[in-house]
Design a protein around this nucleic acid. Structure first.
Lengths: 184, 184
DNA sequence: ACATCCTGTAACATATTATAACATAGACAT
DNA sequence: ATGTCTATGTTATAATATGTTACAGGATGT
């Protein structure tokens, strides 16, 4: 692998994970830790990442922290409770108002999204959309986009939820397919 | 885990719980208590947390508060999602962080409250507490005060909720009694 | 007040990571 | 072939992190 490719992959990895260890990068990329140190030096100098003892950390820029944005799909105001955030390769972040719009945008961009973040509907904990459980067709109306999509951290919680409110719970890949079918 | 990640998690944990023991942090993060002591030193120096014997406590400064108010009962930041507002005769408004603290304050003030307003746990609609349905003893943990109290607009929704997550749903008067019993 | 248990801190030992200096291998031009 | 440049690895040493131990001091019950 060329040095330039390796540096690109380091950038992608740290953007995906926020923090990553030098030793892990060394293992993943099959080069010595010394080489990783030399690779990340320009990234540190350019202010893309920060060095910490044992690893590197992504620098968060202020643009990522804005709440007063509009949904990138339906253009409605974002309710932080339901928001669905997508991290793109150019370090930009797109925000959708809810799981519905998030999945729509996932479809449009495909692999162009490095990571997606949503929140547990009940606990508001942050979680990776790829690992979330998506609940469709429940009887409750939260007043956002239709067909409604709720996201849960744990399958167990989502199942408890549909026990009372009806609907189905499915993982990310199936949710992508389902939203596509329902919208066409 | 990198030191920087650990320190970040300590911050998150203390922000969620207000107080936390050193020994618990040591267990949760799989490092010795000495390491926790060393981790929290910069947090103490920065005025983010306070040291207490055996643990640490969050300092509520402006930066920590999304909403500019603190719970009138437990003094924690208000999450608008769970908030419980009480209107007093002198036209003042008191805000509690959740149904739990709201009911505690109702007990203290009794008829001194003109009207109380809470929100539906799922839909975030505003409703009068006197007409709300209070759910106790559910399996889900929303990370606010214990014993946990969730408020619903419709009895039907609260029943659907406990179908999955367990617990009981009761009207205002019974909730007042129950919180009194549970706290004594 | 006393005994006992828990917590805080300093000092030291050990483990992990950073950095510089040097060594090696391959590409390429002369 | 020889020299030069670049990328990479290796080694030694310094810096940092972490755990252990011992002891001091606070907390608690009798």
């Amino acid at each position: 692998m060329l040095p330039i490719e390796r540096i690109k992959r380091i950038k992608e990895l740290v953007q995906k994970r926020q923090v990553i260890k030098i030793s892990e990068l060394s293992n993943l990329l099959n080069v010595s830790e010394m080489t990783i140190h030399r690779d990340i030096k320009p990234l540190i100098d350019d202010g893309i990442i920060l060095k910490t003892f044992g690893g590197i950390r992504l620098i968060e820029n202020e643009a990522n922290l804005q709440d007063d944005n509009l949904c990138v799909v339906c253009n409605r105001p974002i309710h932080s409770k339901l928001s669905y955030r997508m991290i793109l390769p150019n370090n930009q972040i797109e925000i959708a108002c809810c799981g519905h719009c998030g999945l729509m945008r996932e479809q449009q961009l495909g692999d162009g999204i490095l990571q997606s973040i949503c929140q547990d509907f009940l606990k508001q904990t942050t979680l990776s959309a790829k690992l979330a459980w998506f609940v469709f067709d429940t009887s409750i109306d939260i007043g956002c986009c239709q067909p409604q999509v709720l996201t849960f951290e744990k399958k167990e919680d989502s199942e408890k939820f549909i026990k009372g409110f009806g609907g189905i719970t499915i993982p990310f890949d199936q949710a992508l397919d389902l939203i596509h079918n329902k919208m066409n």
